[in-house]
Amino acid sequence: MPVTSVVVEVIEGVNEDLLGRIARIPRVNVFGMKGQQIVTVIEGDNVRDVEDVVRTILEIEGVIGVYPVYSGDYE
């Protein structure tokens, strides 16, 4: 069951709509934001779930990058 934290980088300022869209993605937990960076943790039943979520976040208009920081799989 993998858990990965990523910092989501956005091109413009973080607005409520963008933050909401990210927070509403299943398996995503938003822990906070600073400037144009949002700290999220993605949980999945398998690593495929994590990859799907990362891809979904990357496709959101205004997202310029997704940078993993910590990744663990503790099956």
């Binding site: 937990n29 999220t40 943790v41 910590y70 990744s71 663990g72």
Partner: peptide, 8 residues
């Protein structure tokens, strides 16, 4: 989960 969040 919280360890991962702290790291980021």
């Amino acid at each position: 989960k919280y360890s991962a969040a702290v790291a980021a």
